[in-house]
Design a binder for these strands. Structure first.
Lengths: 211, 211
DNA sequence: GTCTATAGAAGGATAGAC
DNA sequence: GTCTATCCTTCTATAGAC
């Protein structure tokens, strides 16, 4: 039986599913979906502050005033990009963990998943989540952090087991933070169409924590 | 004898020294030094775009127009913070490498030095270098990259030796990038006044690459 | 080296028509 | 759901006095 004492601060799977159902980021059918995809792109390439609502509007072929039919203000666009990015990738991560049998496989799966999230199709949105964090107003940060906790817990429990079994040395929290840095940072130098495959990179990253 | 064919793209020690002599960041005696220290602080806390010249001016107790007596424009302030940060820390790193006798000691020294640079007294300026990079106009980026190459070369040659000796497994370039991510990212979660000492963190980071 | 005053441009957001 | 028109604020940068 799970400990429910933290329920208000955590997210259960049902909540995650309902947020997932409302995700628009990857939906090119809706105007809002196209806006979010383009916003992720522009926020990643130019940064949030240097992307104007006029830029975003003209990139999707509408006028700047029309943006505010879909979002109350510019901050809400940022929030939506981040929320959708994290929900989408948390779901992939849960599936990856379920699919793995050994602990080593699970760790590699988590690494692969995180590398995929930051360098693959949702890479721009994930980059925004990681590198534009400071631009999200504090009250909105809290909501996203709650979502993030779900997949950080996946990581921590995997690392705790690995330390218990002697596969990994050190404090799980510190290892997770060091590894999170390595993986997030990969988007600044890794090229998905280069000679290094994402799978090889994942294996090299796994080597960092295994002993 | 060193290969001089890349001279134009590299930096020699004399040049480094002359740039170092012109460094103002850590000089509280000059108005420019105070401006740079405060700029590093504000750029780190709020980000470059969200820091106005008015903010900066009032933080050092002058009027916004007076800023432009010291710097031609706002971008030049950012450039100066970055240049001084990198020159200051490259020098520390060179000294650290010189002082170490074994290769393992050298690697630990490089890690310690990088952690110190991003979490210690020059931490705010180094954070600006790492996380506000995109805000520096491209032509200015080139000059800073040239400076940065000096200490990246220190890293690469140490890692190449370590791989040759079997201390470290994998491609030195990839290992360096993964490690650089870990170390830079530490400024987002590590607290220098917390229970984890910088020395312990350095040792944990060394564990990442050693096999 | 700092001040005052202000030019000039750009950005977020709103209102109301269609 | 999008357009037009525009308000209002904020920001960088300049000019010239002290």
């Amino acid at each position: 039986m799970e400990d429910m004492s933290h329920k208000s601060a955590r997210l259960d799977l049902d909540e995650l599913e309902s947020v997932f159902a409302a995700m628009e980021l990857t939906n090119p059918e809706s105007a809002k979906g196209r806006l979010l995809t383009m916003a992720a792109h522009l926020f990643k390439v130019r940064g949030f502050d240097r992307t104007t609502v006029r830029d975003l509007a003209s990139a999707v072929g509408i006028q700047s005033g029309s943006i505010f039919h879909h979002f109350k203000n510019k901050d809400e666009i940022l929030e939506a990009v981040m929320r959708d990015a994290i929900v989408y990738n948390t779901r992939l991560m849960i599936e990856g963990v379920k699919a793995s049998t050994t602990l080593k496989e699970q760790l590699l799966g988590l690494i692969r998943c995180e590398l995929e999230s930051i360098n693959g199709v949702t890479g721009e949105a994930m980059n925004v989540l990681v590198f534009e964090w400071r631009n999200l107003p504090e009250e909105k940060q809290r909501g996203i952090l709650e979502l993030r906790q779900y997949y950080e817990d996946l990581w921590l429990s995997a690392l705790e087991s690995a330390v218990e079994q002697g596969m990994v040395q050190g404090d799980p929290f510190v290892i997770r933070r060091l590894l999170a840095g390595s993986l997030s940072w990969s988007s600044t130098w890794y090229r998905i169409d280069g000679s290094l495959s994402l799978e090889h990179l994942a294996e090299q990253a796994l080597l960092l924590i295994l002993h």
